[in-house]
Design a protein around this nucleic acid. Sequence first.
RNA 1: GGAGUCUUAGCUCAGUUGGUAGAGCGUUCGCUUGACGUGCGAAAGGCCACUGGUUCGAAUCCAGUAGGCUCCACCA
Length: 876
Amino acid sequence: MKELPKAYSSQEYEDFIYQTWETLGLFTPEVNTGKKPFSISMPPPNATGTLHLGHATMLAIEDIMIRYKRMCGYSVLWLPGTDHASIATQNKVEKIIAEEGLTRHDLGRKKFLDRVHKFVADSQSIIRNQVRKMGASCDWSRERYTLDEGLSEAVTEAFIKMYHDGVIYRGNRIVNWCPRCSSTLADDEVEYREEKAKFYYFKYGPVIIGTARPETKFLDKIIVVHPDDKRYKKYIGKEMEVEWIEGNITAKFIADNAADPEFGSGAMTITPAHSFVDFEIAKKHKLEIVQIIDEKGNLTSSAGEFAGKNAYEAREAIVEKLRKKGLVEKIDENYIHKLSVCYRCGSTIEPLVSKQWFIDVNKKVINEGKSKKSIKEKAVSVVKNGEIEIIPKRFNKTYFHWMENLRDWCISRQIWFGHRIPVYYCEKDNNGCGEIIISKDAPKKCPKCGNVKLKQDPDTLDTWFSSGLWTFSTLGWPEKTDELKHFHPTSVMETGYDILFFWVARMIIMSTYHLNEIPFKTVYLHGLVRDKQGRKMSKSLGNGIDPLDMISKYGADAVRLSLIVGATPGNDIRLYEEKIAGFRNFVNKIWNASRFALMNLNEEDLKAEIDLKNLNSADKWILTRTQNLIKKITKDMETHKYSEAGNILYDFIWLEFCDWYLEMSKVKLNPGVLIYVLKTILKLLHPFIPFVTEVLWKNTGSKNMLIIEDWPEFKKEYIFRNEEKKINIIMDIITAIRSIRAEYKVDPTRKIEAVIYSEEHLEVLHEKKEILEKMAGLKDIQIQNKGKPISKSASKVIQGVEIFLPLDALIDLEKEKERLYKEIKSEEEIISFLEKKLDNQGFVRNAPKDVVKREMEKLEISLINLKKLEQKLKGL
RNA sequence: GGAGUCUUAGCUCAGUUGGUAGAGCGUUCGCUUGACGUGCGAAAGGCCACUGGUUCGAAUCCAGUAGGCUCCACCA
């Protein structure tokens, strides 16, 4: 009765629908209702910018999970938020103020941070809007930000607890230092870039040593060789005078497996302060560690006449000096090595020794029964024993490898933006005693000496320290809130595989340590979004797609589908505009299918129930197909096969519901069945395309909004296997007739006569006579159990059903003969294949019985088809 | 150096307990068929990368080869 517009225009509805859901509080769960909990912590987008396709993918997948579970009756929490992303955000703001000719030092800590906070606030409101545009049904009333008061408290609490447990310690260790950012970086924040460089060989006493970095070599006086290296065995343990950059020094030979006899000369000198490997060797052999390069990347006073110069710039001058001394053996110009660079700014990393805060990953601190496990062991075991499931499974291996090789985690950063380290020093310079005070709030005086001049540690914490707490800090920890009890561990962590280490691993560490509880039960990793050629989307390539553009052009529903269908966990997905347009068409198809249904149903019909006694075979067919669909989609949802589910729904709606059932309904319409199937489809689709389904749902006269409707239930009483088969035969017959018509170029408007013989399917053929006429363009169909072949006709045999189309003038006998020959040949091929198979005793013996039976049935039908085709050929 | 992953129609991809292959886009032909031209109908197009093995039977499982992509480690 209702008439909807001809095309669905997403722009007209989306914002309004979202607003309605939100203002009605439908995203906000009740906490203690006895309902089973389902929760997801939204991976916080960085507070630096705008939504990109990675976020859009994350939002689409998580919203599907959330909406599905909500419809299944769970108490569902999807908690949104943003991450302060210390280094990234600080860099961004530094770039902005650089355009004003300012540095952060010009502004000072406080003013600079004011700028950062303002910038963050702006980005956050942009992000919030974008998340809404995607249709994400997250609980905004519980939105969090990693620098919120509550979360900051959690960070401080976590730090203090770990400090008192001895898990956090302060020490001089070699770290990755970015001279540009003036900060340390964690091991996994370092990237490698291949670069061609010079490799220098120098004479060093009796040996030749090789190096790519001559500028670090000033104080090298330890020569390391492999213990089994015959060339150098005689020197091991010996000391000798050698001439070097700044005159003679005393060098000593030591043996260590770290020296590779195959590489270079097999002998190396070491620079413990600026190389991870060398540092380890030095610690092992208790060697002196002296800094050569400072925090700005300049040479220290240890470099003699080169002191104060930039290390890289000084390199050639140093080599020149060695050359003058005749110490340069040779220089290899084509040395390819991998340069370590900062993942945020791309500057070359300078490994150096520095006093930093670390998390000890090997200390046994987590109680497990009577024994204790280290952070690292615990994080490995919760995945190994299946408490946490990673999807896809193959990432387990990567996870274990990473975790097992984890070194102590450096958590201090020399960045202003972030959580301050809750440590205060009683400064010796200010008449203090040097006491280190760990405290939640700034202490007034030193508890040991009473000095009031205290200074807080200037550093901030690694941004992943706070994100590691995300699953529980957002639920109120360290308070024991109802939310924490109800929703933690969270159900699913869904994120890109690129941050498995950065973030997922850290959350596992933090949660198992602080709560002795896993942070989530399932980790679902999605892939990266690429362009049609499989390239990464980037600004420089100009191949990026802005999700918001696509939403305004094609609608959020189409964008969501295009990110879901074809995407399997852990695999990258390609996205391009034609694909989105295709799904826009699908959304419009659903719109029009509903439009048709609603045009043909009045108010009464909308409330109609299915009357099992009043169903024709087409109704039974669609009901059966719908039950199949419910079963299949539900299973796919439970097993996270969203792409598969999307595909199945697409095919069902377009190919079965629209192309066949609705067309059949034009002959005879059953309101109860139609409204049931339509409503079921809308429900099944809702998690995928929430907007259009909600708009349509409203038009079906339902009381509740679709978002909180119950997920469809599989009903055995709606399964009719016989009718399912019968209608399939009707469909095959119609398709066959259409095919012949196209082949003979019969005018589409012309109704033609037909003669059909079938013993087995006589009943359904009579019942569906009108449908056959309408859908195949027929008139005056003669249906008989058997009869003579009609000469001068085009014919076809489908499942033993003989079809004759007496087309008189249009029939070219030769052509028809040829057509029949072709069909006979293909039928014979099938028969010979099947006979061969069934003659094979191995097959009959070993194959499952139903497979053998199916093949026998196929053979039987083909034999009948062949016989009838041959008869027809004779009758021509 | 180690690991993972992919290779199916011109393009992008499905194909889960192994039973001689499917979709969308594109192409060709036709169509105002009582919702939809963002549509309808029909069709063309594939030794499922290569070589072996397991099996009655392999696109599907195993091994190897070639090519693409990704991650990890890192060498003075």
